[in-house]
């Protein structure tokens, strides 16, 4: 017994050494990923964090939410350049643009070009000149993910659903770069697809964030112009005001097609063909792991595309609008109710 005590003691000592050593060795190697989000840590953020945790790779994800306030971006740039996280994850066109700018500009208020960046949810990374092509971003420290279908697909979806469709409505916010780009893109696209685009500025003359109160007014205006379908996308502002936006559309008998699946699942948009943000977050985590764990150079990695898209249709809204999806649609669509 007396012999066993020193034995036990030494065992405990060894165990405590192991316990003390392991976290400290991890702590030494643990990487920091700074995620900059436009409005809170939602599905994409969750998908990203889960995938990193599941990989077993020692990395902490630090979330920074700018809460739709683009003004915060310059401070964040400064912070990044100072603290030098191991990788920066950006969400949305505005955030990405604010942090890394376009291919051409080399302004000093962007983050340092030797900090790896993975961008996500940039509606059109090539049109905005954030990246060069799907093959490579064109910048040594930047790669990203892509999660959209071409806008022509969104318009064709409506045509499949409603063969009589000929007029597409759009409410845009010219203060939001993305929204303005989208308006231009649709203006160019509509005639090639044989449809008429009815685009209304949400709150003309207002330099700041538009007044949400204008949404129902504009919706009624669209209705008067004979619009039965509107497109809702590329606007964080509108997404934020999704509840009001979609409900006033339904009240006006207008169906919404949107790349934001959550607006169909949780709000009152009718139809979406999109990848799940959770899945996009997981894709972004894959890119991050390739860089941090496998030692890949971000600029050598292709922009990965989301693969799992789904038709999601809100059947409650379909019934309210009396626009039951075509039979063939129902064989593939994910039907949801509020």
């Amino acid at each position: 017994m007396g012999d066993s005590v020193p034995g036990l003691r030494s065992l405990l000592l060894f165990a405590s050494m192991v316990i003390a050593f392991v976290p400290s060795s991890f702590a030494e190697d643990r990487r920091t990923i700074l995620g900059i989000f436009y409005e809170g840590c939602e599905h994409l953020c969750e998908g990203f964090k889960t995938a990193i945790a599941d990989s077993g790779f020692p990395a902490s994800v630090v979330v920074r939410d700018i809460n739709q306030d683009k003004a915060q971006l310059s401070a964040i740039v400064a912070e990044i350049n100072e603290t030098r996280p191991d990788l920066v994850l950006t969400f949305g066109t505005s955030v990405t643009m604010g942090l890394i700018g376009t291919l051409e500009d080399s302004r000093p208020d962007r983050i340092s070009s030797n900090i790896p960046v993975v961008f996500t949810v940039v509606a059109d990374p090539f049109g905005t000149n954030i990246a060069e092509s799907f093959e490579a971003s064109g910048r040594k420290n930047v790669t990203g993910t892509f999660n959209r279908v071409p806008e022509s697909v969104n318009i064709e979806v409506i045509r499949q659903y409603d063969p009589a469709f000929s007029k597409l409505g759009l409410l845009y916010n010219s203060n939001e770069r993305n929204s303005a780009i989208k308006k231009k893109e649709l203006e160019a696209l509509a005639p090639t697809l044989g449809i008429e685009l009815v685009a209304l500025e949400l709150d003309p003359g207002n330099e700041g964030a538009p007044d949400p109160g204008t949404i129902p007014e504009r919706m009624a205006e669209l209705r008067k112009k004979g619009v039965e379908w509107i497109y809702l996308g590329s606007s964080s502002y509108l997404r934020k005001n999704g509840d009001l936006y979609t409900s006033s559309a339904v009240e006006n008998g207008i169906a919404i097609v949107s790349p934001y699946e959550s607006l169909v699942r949780e709000k009152q948009a009718l139809l979406s063909i999109a990848a799940r943000y959770y899945d996009v977050g997981q894709l972004a985590a894959g890119q991050a792991l390739k860089i941090l764990r496998d030692g890949a150079t971000p600029g050598d990695l292709p922009i990965v595309r989301a693969t799992d898209f789904a038709y999601v249709v809100n059947m409650d809204v379909a019934r309210k609008l009396d626009r039951i999806p075509p039979f063939a649609f129902l064989q593939i669509a994910e039907a949801v109710t509020n």
Binding site: V149, P150, S152, V153, E156, V157, Q160, I273, F309, Y311, A328, F329, I332
Partner: peptide
């Protein structure tokens, strides 16, 4: 078919 007809 509906998906493929969209070109996806």
């Amino acid at each position: 078919k509906p998906i493929v007809d969209l070109g996806l």
